[in-house]
Structures are given as structure tokens and as C-alpha cells.
């Protein structure tokens, strides 16, 4: 083809344009995501920075895997994830169903339910710390309304290991239920009401229709909500530190922060923290992959739907 105007033919230009368009994203991705990841991974296998005479080593990992606190953190995290995600999901689903019934005032209810979502995690931490301390507002409130005797204030933050974890689960649930609910609610509102109505006409009770129709149809939404929640729950740490301080209830992310950020000056801790962050990333990826696999997100789609 004769090509008087430029170096590239029309065909070639057409092929190149999409790549040009995504180039900024690719560059951003390489600079701010891929590079740090590569450096974290490579750094976790070094005893010190290369220019300070560091050498290749598995030492950071062996140190990590010999540390009993790591296993404690692993267990605590797993426990919190399992219970809190289940609890949050069930409650959020119930709330979403309730609001979706569009009763009188459901709009106001939705607004109130969304308030916790709008608070930053630090504010939530501060609120609960001041609330749960022995002289905090929660005890005052319970005493004021007469449920509690002034003499037996509850020492919320001083409970045992599991009491601590349940406290964290409750506080976390309080904050994230609204976001899960909003995702589920938007999924519910996107369903054609006739799908459920047909269920009722053809002999379904409320429960049967929920189980056989609503939930299966909501599956893509549920998968999204669950995966977001699982990932976020594995990464819980700030609220724990704010309520109890470091090392009182070890969890994975808190341990990273502790090793990398708090034990300043110690190369060994810093390196162990890097190894831990690689391990946590691996865990998150594996759990997400497993969940998607089990929930059938990789299966051939059954069809384009109605």
C-alpha cells in the first residue's frame, strides 16, 4: 500500500493505539507495584542491603518459622478471619434483606446503618478505646441506664486471649458490616423482582425462594463481597494495636509492622518482617484463589442469563 503521510500504515497505527493507551497504567504498575514487590521478595532473601555486604540467605525465613509468635499470629489471624467474616456476612445479608423489603423508613435505616462506614479506622479505634476502657463511656452508659452496678465495671480490655479476639471481632464487625451490606444490597436491587415472584407463585415459601433463587442469583455479588472481606480481614491490625498495643494479641500484619517499623535499627528484625510480608502476600493470594475456585468463579459460565 502506498503510504505518503507517515512512517506507519493505517493498519499498524490501529494495532499500536491500544498499547499506547494502556502504557501509563503499565508504567505506573511497574514503578509502584511490581518494583516494590520484587524488592521485598529479593530483600527477604538477603542478610543486609547488597551495598552493605549483604549475602543471599534463607536465614530470615528460618528465623521467622522458628518464632513461636509467628504461629500465634497465624492462628489468631485465621480465627479472627473465620469468625468475623462469617458473622459479618450473615448479619450483613440479613440487614440487606431487611432494607430491600422497602418498608416505611427503610431509607433512613440505611442511612443510619452506613454511618460506621464513613469513619476512618483510626477514629473507630479511638472511639472504642475510650469506650472500652474501664472508665470509658460504655461502662458509664451501662451504669447510667441501670444495667450495671457502679461497683462492678466491666474490664473489657483485660480479658483473656479469646475474650480479646471476640472483642476485636465485634468491633471489626461494627465497622465493616455496612460495607458488606451495601454490596449485597446493590446486588439484590439488580435482581429482577419477577425472579423471586415466580418462586412464590410456583409454590415457594420465603425461605425456599431465598435459598433456591435469591442466593444462587446473588452468587457473583456474594463472591465479590466475601473475597474483599477475607482479604481485608487477613490484614486486620490497626484496631488491635489501638485497643491492646503491640504484641498483646499478635496477628500477621501487626507483626510485620512491629518488625519492620518498631524495632528500628535492627537489621535482623527488619529482614524477618520482609520475609513475613512475603508470606502474608502468599497466604492472601492462596486463600483468594482457593475461595474463587471453590465458589466456582472459574467455571465455564452457564450461559448469558436472562
Amino acid at each position: 500500500m502506498d503510504n505518503p503521510t507517515g512512517v506507519l500504515s493505517r493498519e499498524q497505527k490501529k494495532k499500536i493505539i491500544p498499547y499506547l493507551l494502556i502504557a501509563p497504567v503499565v508504567i505506573y504498575y511497574i514503578l509502584f507495584w511490581l518494583l516494590p514487590v520484587v524488592r521485598a521478595i529479593s530483600g527477604s532473601f538477603m542478610s543486609a542491603p547488597a551495598d552493605e555486604g549483604g549475602v543471599f540467605t534463607f536465614g530470615n525465613y528460618t528465623a521467622l518459622f522458628k518464632d513461636p509468635v509467628f504461629y500465634q499470629a497465624l492462628f489468631n489471624t485465621a480465627f479472627i478471619v473465620l469468625i468475623s467474616v462469617t458473622l459479618e456476612f450473615v448479619l450483613a445479608f440479613g440487614l440487606a434483606l431487611l432494607i430491600n423489603m422497602k418498608f416505611h423508613g427503610s431509607g433512613m435505616f440505611l442511612f443510619l446503618a452506613l454511618i460506621p462506614m464513613s469513619l476512618p479506622a483510626v477514629a473507630v479505634g479511638a472511639m472504642w478505646t475510650s469506650g472500652l476502657s474501664t472508665y470509658g463511656w460504655l461502662n458509664s452508659f451501662l451504669i447510667r441506664i441501670g444495667i450495671l452496678n457502679a461497683a462492678d465495671k466491666i474490664i473489657f480490655l483485660g480479658g483473656g486471649h479469646f475474650a480479646k479476639m471476640f472483642l476485636i471481632i465485634i468491633v471489626d464487625a461494627w465497622q465493616v458490616i455496612p460495607s458488606v451490606m451495601v454490596i449485597l444490597l446493590s446486588g439484590m436491587q439488580a435482581l429482577q423482582p419477577e425472579m423471586m415472584e415466580a418462586g412464590y407463585v410456583f409454590g415457594g415459601s420465603r425461605f425456599k425462594v431465598l435459598r433456591k433463587i435469591t442466593i444462587p442469583l446473588l452468587k457473583p455479588t456474594i463472591t465479590t463481597a466475601m473475597i474483599l472481606r477475607i482479604i481485608a480481614a487477613i490484614q486486620i491490625w490497626l484496631i488491635i494495636v489501638m485497643l491492646f498495643g503491640y504484641n498483646r494479641l499478635p496477628v500477621l500484619l501487626e507483626q510485620i509492622v512491629l518488625n519492620v517499623d518498631k524495632y528500628t535499627g535492627s537489621e535482623a528484625f527488619f529482614r524477618k518482617g520482609m520475609a513475613l510480608s512475603v508470606v502474608v502476600s502468599l497466604i492472601v493470594s492462596c486463600v483468594s484463589f482457593l475461595y474463587l475456585k471453590v465458589s466456582g468463579a472459574f467455571d465455564e459460565p452457564a450461559g448469558k442469563g436472562v
Binding site: Q192, L217, K219, V306
Partner: peptide
């Protein structure tokens, strides 16, 4: 009942 948009269940 037959619904206007069929309302058959895609799953």
C-alpha cells in the same frame, strides 16, 4: 403465571 419477561431462573 407466565411473566412478561419470562422470569425463568438462569441458574
Amino acid at each position: 403465571m407466565v411473566f412478561q419477561n419470562y422470569a425463568i431462573w438462569p441458574h
